[in-house]
Design a protein around this nucleic acid. Structure first.
Length: 154
DNA sequence: GCCAACGTTGGC
DNA sequence: GCCAACGTTGGC
């Protein structure tokens, strides 16, 4: 099993939206590096949900991969993510369906910076624009421990 | 709102 | 294939 970090702007799709929907398809990713990570994701993998582009960015919860699939928006001529070169037999863009697992008390970007280096956590790197990125197990377990201690405090 | 960092586009 | 210009992202 692998760990990931998935980034979303809450103004566009927040963790509360996912909690309400229970699950969602991570569609619309049109960056090859992010797609390659999406291709590596497997059912059962866990991902930290990160809120970006807000006053207090950080990790807000945990999600689980429940399916892998071709991004449906690439076949939709009305979608801004339409990809005319894609066919169902040979899709260009792969993605995953994720389900809500649990909410954390916010683990702020500031806290993450104190705990981890930019080498350990890609999301901390300046200018990072990937919406999906891997998290090595050692770091993932530390984040989960951090989340559990915050839950215990609250 | 500012601006640095990044990916993409398009002229050559 | 290079690279300047441009649009977007995202922290602050």
């Amino acid at each position: 099993m692998n760990y990931w970090l998935m980034k979303s702007e809450p103004k566009i799709y927040s963790f509360d939206d996912l909690k309400r929907d229970r699950e969602t398809v991570w569609d619309g990713v049109r960056n090859y590096q992010a797609r390659n990570f999406l291709r590596q994701m497997q059912v059962g993998d866990l991902a930290f949900f990160y809120h970006s582009n807000i006053a207090f960015p950080g990790l807000v919860g945990l999600v689980r991969v429940v399916a892998t699939l071709a991004d449906p928006t690439q076949f939709d001529p009305n979608s801004r993510y339409y990809e005319p070169k894609s066919t169902p037999e040979c899709p260009r863009w792969q993605t995953v369906r994720v389900e809500f697992v649990e909410t954390f008390p916010l683990i702020s970007r500031e806290t993450l910076k104190q705990e981890f280096s930019t080498e350990e956590l890609i999301v901390l790197r300046q200018g990072n624009r990937l919406s999906v990125m891997p998290v090595v197990e050692k770091v993932a377990l530390q984040i989960l421990a951090l989340a559990n201690s915050k839950i215990a405090q609250s």
